[in-house]
Design a protein around this nucleic acid. Structure first.
Length: 291
DNA sequence: CGTTCATCCTGAGAGC
DNA sequence: TGCTCTCAGGATGAAC
């Protein structure tokens, strides 16, 4: 659900509200939310209690809280990894607020401040403990490529990898091991801006075209972040429960039947990987061969 | 090895 | 109203 801009909005909220605070207790409801933690929810809660949050960080759509022993000065060597999945929310709330229907985790701190809650209707998201590598990235997400805003992002290297792929370009954009952070909305937006149909085979694109496509993806995510992210409903909110406004600026995603904002041709929708793709048939001509 | 697909869930909205 | 069906901002492991 949330893609890079929406996750970054959440990260900033975490940085504002939990950095520097010391966890007193973590309540985990049900086994599913911590299913990635093989030792079980009790073990996870035990590891977290007493730890201090030194930073809220992000790579692609993954979030994590760097954890240190209370008042320690050294670099974090462990992290609480968080993923919002399709419907996850992290909310900063007072303890008196009634529990949400799909509340899966409650983090309380050893101060008088508000608690942090993980709420997730579908529970595709979840929490896990991870050691941190020498580069500061949790080992559990070592397979996730840098996103376009990461200092480690190497656009030319990404272009070369994409150029070598025989898959359709939209699949490659969604592949988090190539470039992370791009999901279904921003893939469609970037393809529309670049005038490329998602079913084009990646290797048939020129390297300059691939580079432009990646830059469009970066640009559209920058703009979305500037408007607080994209939200169509109350599911996609920041830590204070507020929605972003980029939905009004979408040119492709969800625009089926409306005129293309560039050429006026009616936008189309097609099924793709058990979801949908939206495109302009004139600006983004479908390749002759579909595979 | 790389690639594709089904699957995990709940709820909203459409159509009958 | 209520039922059935489709669809949803994602990632993963199993199967080829």
């Amino acid at each position: 659900m949330p893609e890079l801009p929406e996750v970054e909005v959440v990260r900033r909220g975490l940085a504002d509200h939990v950095e520097g605070r010391r966890l007193s207790a973590v309540e985990l409801r049900g086994a599913r939310v911590a299913r990635r933690h093989v030792l079980g929810p009790e073990d996870l809660a035990g590891r977290l209690a007493g730890r201090q949050v030194s930073a809220a960080r992000r790579r692609g759509k993954y979030l994590w809280l760097d954890l240190v022993e209370a008042d320690a000065a050294g670099a974090a060597d462990a992290a609480l990894l968080l993923h919002l999945g399709m419907s996850g929310q992290l909310l900063v709330e007072h303890a008196e607020a009634p529990d949400e229907k799909h509340l899966h985790a409650r983090f309380t701190f050893d101060d008088d401040g508000p608690e942090l809650r993980f709420v997730d209707q579908r529970t595709f998201g979840g929490l896990a403990w991870s050691e941190t590598g020498p580069d500061g990235i949790p080992l559990a997400i070592a397979h996730i490529a840098p996103d376009p805003f990461d200092p480690a992002y190497d656009r030319d290297a990404a272009v070369r990898r994409i150029k070598a792929k025989g898959s359709e370009i939209k699949r490659v954009l969604l592949d988090q091991t190539v470039v992370s952070g791009i999901g279904n909305i921003y893939a469609d937006e970037a393809l529309w801006r670049a005038g490329i149909h998602g079913r084009r085979v990646a290797s048939t694109l020129t390297k300059p075209a691939i580079a432009r496509l990646l830059d469009h993806a970066q640009d559209v995510m920058t703009q979305a972040l500037g408007e607080g992210g994209t939200s169509f409903d109350a599911l996609y909110v920041n830590v204070n429960g507020a929605s972003g406004y980029f939905g009004r600026s979408l040119n492709a995603y969800g625009q089926v039947g409306r005129p293309c904002r560039r050429c006026g041709t009616l936008m189309l929708r097609e099924h793709f990987m058990n979801r949908s793709s939206f495109f302009c048939p004139r600006c983004q001509p479908r390749p002759r061969t579909t595979s």
